[in-house]
Nucleic acid binder design. Structure first.
Length: 807
RNA sequence: GCCGGUGUGGCGGAACUGGCAGACGCAAGGGACUUAAAAUCCCUCGGUGGCAGCACCGUGCGGGUUCGAGCCCCGCCACCGGCACCA
């Protein structure tokens, strides 16, 4: 017998809409639980099958928490600024605000259709001026605290679209949209000093319950390294500084290299005898994109600076100076010491330019390749360092350099400051004006939000300036400080801005005095459990940790870290295990699954499909199994007896199942939790069940498949007798005593090979089990002509008989 | 190259702390019901040999530790994700 899921799901969704059983209550005396999912970008394609995976998982966790007595905040919103909407708007000549409004409508309907227990009254939308007012406010706080600054830097420029592209829009060196080459172009940009927080963003990870790969990826991205800054005297009369993590190899320096972008080159112009050649090389390097420089990295290029030499501070040797693009301006000092013996890049360079290669750590073959040393390798050819291990020599050289005054210990990070501006329309306006006399001046807080003007054309300009730059009425304003003429900043914030703090707004979404009240922040902070995609680990997750730590420093939020726990889900792939994409035609639309099988089946199946953390491929065929399971549950409602007690025959399995489901949900092992419930249902179906048995099952199922559960809960009269919906009941508890059976089945092995099992009383002694085991036919056969020399015995688990031939 | 991760039936996946490999589901085959089909229900379902009892083999490959290894150790291979001239 099939159930009418369409009618049932509609009925309960309407009910929840009216009765709001999932509303979070600020200041409630119950313990709080804040569960968070990454709010979706409301794209024109609507909800993707990838969304329900994390959403359903957290919905289950939150529904269970409510049943466990928590005051749960499980909010939803929309991250609605961004490029796809803007591009769609350009193509179809519809204003992005309208596109966004329509898309949010679609998303809202789809999310409600899946029965999530969101508190819809707290919904936020990052492109709503009431929201981005506070995004701008936080930016102004950053500006006030010297965390935002403007600088000129190269950006990606599409030669065909004549516009600036975000890094994410550059794929393999070409424009994602038109396939034209992307080149670098200098532009003035607002930057955020995330590097100031590099160390804290590493250190504060220690106390957080993040899955390990997230922590590792963030640490690697920040890229802390400990080393030494070393000063080298140069024949130009200057002293240059290099950064090295390997001061033990200073005696192996045979040349120096400076980055083509280094400003010092310009200063040395008159002393470089082959300046024309050097200058040509610089210009060539400038033309290359980062991508080309990276791609062509195998073949080293460079030019020797004629007339410039450096002196090795360790051994007074004079070494040549080169310019080469394998040295990056953005890391360290833009100058490196060349140690070809122990760095493969330096080795390649030395080979190409015929430079000497000195072995300073024993163990390798310098004619073949650089020798990658270990901490325990021994230093040679290095004066006072000779005979030391690499590890000791690093310390010894650092001490020596500091004592002699030509070096300092130094920590470096790979993390760069955050380029915070986009030359686009559909983003938060930056609330600053540029005044000839006062410089950059923030607009007064009372004028926030600085709203995006409605422009006639939000299309891109030829010169790469933001579409806002053409809005002269809007651009030209007066300086808030001196009252003189001034211009507004016309770039907007990147799409990561709004998501940096949205979880704070959920705590107090309608507040028009502050981004959230102190009481709300103190009550709900921090987010207890945040689930999201691995692809956001070094972007959104890191950015929002940075903002939050900054907000803590200025006293705006009560905790240092925003999220106590972070988990991550795997991707849903198409049928063949390939990424879902329009071009492959393998995109699964959740709508189709819901209309064919119902929301409960969709929810159940997306959880049952596999290990939550791993990528899985979707199978339309397999969905049927989940539907069949729900049909069987429905049938139990028709067939169960009226007995309100849990029946003895199901007691053990039921208690085991409650334990399994209770524990598995906490580890997001929804697949095994569901498997356990399937086993229970199979047992109920085969042996029949009572109303009491069914009641417990429904409570367990309630977070997973809420619609069918509420319907059965009502029909079978539980709702009437308790006066509550199933989702408002207490979570079922289990009794360990009822899980433990009187007897246990133990494995019997002979010489490690399984021969059978014996059923014995729990906690049987070794002798009794061995005796029982020897009665097994297979054991007897194996023992023919043998005697027992040893018995391995693990109570209630296994007995293993070790035999040898009878003498 | 570096850092993570993964590898188990035809498929998705289970397996506690080293203790009965393959739970649960899909597909497949056989049967029941049906005029028939769908749905539902029952049975089989890692491989090889055998009518069968049963025997042997089996968790990417090669070694090792152990009474016992999918799980631990050493050495490989393949795939996935991230970073990548970061000195």
């Amino acid at each position: 017998m099939k159930y009418d899921f369409q009618a049932i799901e509609k009925k309960w969704q309407d009910n929840w809409e009216k009765t709001k059983p999932y509303a979070a209550v600020n200041g409630d005396p119950r313990p709080k639980f804040y569960g968070l999912i990454e709010f979706p970008y409301p794209s024109g394609q609507g909800l993707h099958v990838g969304h329900p995976r994390p959403f359903t998982a957290m919905d289950i966790v939150c529904r269970k928490r409510r049943m466990q007595g928590y005051n749960v905040l499980f909010p939803i919103g929309f991250d609605s600024f961004g490029l796809p909407t803007e591009n769609y708007a350009i193509k179809n000549h519809i204003h992005p605000a309208i596109v966004t409004r329509d898309n949010i409508k679609t998303f809202t309907a789809q999310l409600k259709m899946l029965g999530y227990s969101f508190d819809w009254d707290r919904c936020v939308d990052t492109s709503d001026p009431n929201y981005y007012k506070w995004t701008q406010w936080i930016f102004l706080k950053m500006f006030e605290n010297d965390m935002a600054y403007k600088t000129t830097m190269p950006v990606n420029w599409c030669t065909s679209c004549k516009c600036v592209l975000a890094n994410e829009e550059v794929v393999d060196g070409v424009c994602e949209r038109c396939g034209s080459p992307v080149v670098q172009k200098e532009k003035s940009q607002w930057m955020l000093r995330i590097t100031k927080y590099a160390q804290r963003l590493i250190d504060d990870l220690d106390d957080l319950d993040y899955i390990n790969r997230v922590k590792i990826q963030q640490r690697n991205w920040i890229g802390r390294s400990e080393g030494l800054e070393l000063d080298f005297k140069v024949t130009t009369g200057d002293t240059v500084t290099v950064y090295t993590t390997r001061p033990d190899t200073v005696f192996g320096v045979t040349y120096m290299v400076i980055s083509p972008e280094h400003p010092l080159l310009e200063q040395w112009k008159d002393q470089i005898q082959n300046w024309d050649e050097v200058d040509a090389y610089r210009k060539e390097a400038a033309r290359k994109s980062d991508f080309e420089r990276g791609e062509l990295n195998k073949d080293k290029t460079g030019v020797c600076l004629q007339g410039v030499r450096a002196v090795n501070p360790a051994n007074r040797a004079s070494v040549p100076f080169f310019v080469s693009d394998y040295v990056l301006m953005g890391y360290g000092t833009g100058i490196v010491m060349g140690v070809p013996g122990h760095d493969q890049r330096d080795w390649d360079f030395a080979e190409k330019f015929g430079l000497p290669i000195i072995e300073v750590v024993a163990g390798g073959d310098m004619t073949e390749a650089a020798y990658a040393t270990k901490e325990s390798s021994i230093v040679v050819n290095s004066g006072f360092l000779d005979g030391m291990t690499v590890k000791d020599a690093i310390t010894a050289m650092a001490d020596y350099a500091e004592k002699e005054g030509f070096g300092r210990r130094k920590v470096n990070y790979k993390l760069r400051d955050w380029v915070f501006t986009r030359q686009r329309y559909w983003g938060e306006p930056i609330p600053l004006v540029n005044c000839k006399t006062c410089g950059w001046v923030p607009i007064p807080e009372s004028e926030l939000p600085l709203e995006l003007p409605m422009v006639d054309s939000y299309e891109l300009t030829d010169d790469g300036e933001s579409p806002l730059s053409k809005m002269t009425d809007w651009v030209n304003t007066t300086c808030p400080k001196c009252g003189g003429p001034a211009q507004r900043e016309t770039d907007t914030m990147p799409n990561w801005a709004g998501s940096c703090w949205y979880f704070l707004r959920y705590m107090d979404p309608h507040n028009d005095k502050e981004f959230a009240s102190r009481e709300a922040l103190e009550y709900w902070s921090p987010v207890d459990w945040y689930n999201g995609g691995m692809e956001h680990t070094t972007l959104h997750l890191l950015y929002s940790r940075f903002w939050h730590t900054f907000l803590y420093d200025i006293g705006a939020v009560p905790t240092i870290e925003p999220y106590q726990k972070r988990t991550s889900h795997g991707m849903i792939l198409g049928e063949g295990g390939e990424k879902m994409s329009k071009s492959r035609g393998n995109v699964i639309n959740p709508n189709d699954i819901v209309s064919q099988y119902g929301a409960d089946t969709m929810r159940l199946h997306i959880m049952f499909i596999g290990d939550f953390e791993k990528a899985v491929s979707w199978s339309n065929e397999a969905v049927k199994g989940s539907k069949r399971f729900l049909d069987r549950v429905w049938n139990l409602g028709e067939s169960c007896s009226d007995d309100p007690a849990v029946s003895a025959q199901h007691e053990t399995l039921l208690n085991k199942t409650i334990k399994k489901v209770t524990e598995d949900i906490e580890e997001l092992k929804m697949n095994t939790a569901i498997a356990a419930m399937m086993t229970l249902v199979n047992d109920y179906t085969a042996q029949g069940c009572s109303k009491g048995d069914l009641e417990q099952l429904l409570l367990l199922l309630s977070p997973f498949v809420p619609h069918i559960v509420e319907e059965l809960w009502e029909r079978k009269g539980y709702a009437a007798s308790y006066g509550k919906m199933a989702c408002q009941m207490d979570w079922p508890t289990y009794d360990e005593g009822k899980i433990a059976a009187d007897t246990v089945e133990m494995a019997v092995q002979v010489a490690g090979k399984l021969k059978g099992t014996v059923v014995v009383p729990v906690d049987s002694e070794q002798d009794a089990v061995v005796e029982a085991a020897q009665k097994l036919e297979k054991v007897q056969r194996a023992m023919d002509g043998m005697q027992i020399v040893k018995v391995i015995f693990r109570p209630n688990k296994i007995v293993n008989l070790i035999l040898k031939p009878r003498a």
